[in-house]
Design a protein around this nucleic acid. Structure first.
Lengths: 144, 144
DNA sequence: TTAAACTGGACTAAAAAGGTCTCGTTTATG
DNA sequence: CATAAACGAGACCTTTTTAGTCCAGTTTAA
């Protein structure tokens, strides 16, 4: 349906929060309570981000997750790739292994693949810093 | 999951086919058979496109659907809007009526709305003609 | 030693997508 | 003017995906 899933939303919320928090260690519990996010789900999301080296996980008492990179260095595509299956607007990934019933007569494979590349580029070009700036701009313009 | 649904794929296939077909009237049966698309589903898709004035429907015997516009005049966003719920990367459509549990502390509403605008613009800027060209380019480059 | 935190993975429930079915209405044509 | 080919409308079902929960570990500061 061309929308982000909840995991992506939760990831971006948590990352913006963690970066504001001066890159201190944050526990899942703390973030989940602040944003009313189901704790177990947020744990999975942050775990996925850690596995993709977007953030760092610290085990044990007083453990949690920590920003190690700057917002302007993290692109939205990284968050999407950690929280969605890989972006694929259609299932035919390459021309050889497409097995959909339309395969033989399919007249859109090439265009769909190009479109997918462009969409990935689109999300690659946007950083978390951009999102934070946009959020600020939008909020203030609404108040005017 | 940020992918087109089957309806969008079927719509684009059918539209490219209909435009090649010299803008003659095509029946659902004919297109469904050519591309191995479930007939009843394709009917719904073409019906939705007709309601959005992307194509025209003709009733009765020898009826069907007909291209009335040019490929370069139809943008992908029109197809998406006919075959998906409206593009909304997040549920909060405007700042007043968001009722998700994150509402009070939500720190991404503004950025998500901006991102959504940009994504819509992205799809608005691409026409069916572009898709057809890309398909051709991709197919030929793969053969080299 | 203990409890607070992450790890890993199975599991369930709800929502959306994909597809089918039925009973219409319209209309060209023999 | 009856018929059959086509679209119209909408209920219905099945499968897949998403969202969320649960539990039995492991790690580590205090």
């Amino acid at each position: 349906m061309l929308k982000f899933n909840k995991k992506t939303e939760y990831a971006i919320m948590a990352l913006l929060h963690m970066s504001e928090n001066n890159k201190q260690v944050c526990s899942v519990r703390e973030i989940a309570e602040k944003f009313s996010i189901p704790k177990e789900l947020l744990r999975k999301v942050l775990h996925a981000l850690a596995q993709k080296n977007v953030i760092e996980s610290i085990q044990g008492v007083r453990g949690g997750f920590k920003m190690t990179r700057c917002l302007h260095d993290i692109s939205v595509i990284e968050i999407i790739n950690a929280t969605h299956k890989p972006v694929k607007i259609v299932d035919c990934v390459d021309s050889s292994d497409c097995e959909c019933p339309q395969n033989i007569e399919c007249n859109i494979k090439g265009s769909m693949l190009s479109l997918q590349d462009e969409l990935s580029s689109f999300f690659s070009s946007i950083t978390l810093q951009d999102l934070q700036n946009k959020n600020y701009l939008r909020e203030t313009s609404e108040k005017i």
